[in-house]
Simulated assay, not measured.
Amino acid sequence: MKLPKFSLKARLALSLALLLLVCSGAMFATFDYQTQRSMIAAAQARQDTSLRILVDQFSSVYDGIEVEMSPHGQIEEL
C-alpha cells in the first residue's frame, strides 16, 4: 500500500499543530505540579498555625506544658 504524499503546507501545518500540542501538554504538566506544591505548602502553613494556637490555648489552661520551638518558629517538641 502506498502512502499519500502531502503538500508542503499540509506537512508544515501538521508539524506546527503537533508542536503546539506538545508545548501545551508540557505547560499544563508544569502548572499542575506548581499548583500542587503551592497547595501543599499552604496546607502545611495552616496546620502549623493551628498547632501553635492549640498549644497556646492548652498551655494557658494546663500547667506543665513545655514547648520547644525551632529557629523558624515551628513547634518541634511538647
Rank of each mutant, 00 (worst) to 15 (best):
Y62E: 09
L12M: 14
Q74Y: 14
L51E: 11
A43H: 06
L12F: 05
L16E: 14
Q36R: 13
G64M: 06
I40F: 15
S60P: 01
Q47E: 09
A42L: 07
P4Q: 12
M1I: 09
Q74A: 14
M27S: 12
A26L: 15
Q44D: 02
I40L: 15
G64F: 07
V55Q: 00
M69V: 06
M27L: 13
S7L: 11
E66L: 07
S60T: 09
L16Y: 10
L51T: 15
S70A: 15
S50F: 10
Q74G: 13
V55N: 00
D32C: 10
L54C: 04
V67R: 00
S70M: 07
D56G: 12
L51F: 10
Q44M: 08
L54S: 05
D48K: 05
E68M: 08
T49S: 10
Q47D: 04
K9S: 13
L18D: 13
L54W: 03
Q47G: 04
A17V: 06
L21W: 13
I75F: 03
H72A: 15
G64D: 13
I75V: 13
L51W: 02
V61M: 02
Y62D: 07
V67A: 01
Q44R: 09
L78R: 04
S70L: 09
Q47F: 07
L3R: 03
L78M: 12
R46F: 11
M69E: 12
L20G: 11
S24P: 05
D56T: 09
L78N: 08
V22H: 05
F6I: 01
H72P: 01
L14C: 03
K5P: 01
R46A: 15
F28D: 00
S15P: 00
K2I: 06
F31C: 12
Q36V: 11
P4M: 04
Y62I: 06
S50V: 10
L18Q: 07
A10E: 13
G25P: 04
Q44L: 01
L3Y: 02
F6K: 14
L54D: 06
S15I: 06
L20M: 13
K5Q: 09
A43N: 06
S38N: 14
P71N: 15
D56W: 01
K2Y: 03
S59D: 08
F31W: 03
Q36I: 09
S60A: 11
R37I: 09
P71S: 14
V55A: 01
Q57Y: 02
A26P: 02
L19V: 10
M39Y: 11
F6N: 11
V22W: 02
E76M: 15
E76F: 05
M39V: 11
A17M: 04
T30D: 04
S60L: 08
T49R: 04
I75T: 02
E68R: 15
A13G: 09
A10W: 00
M1L: 12
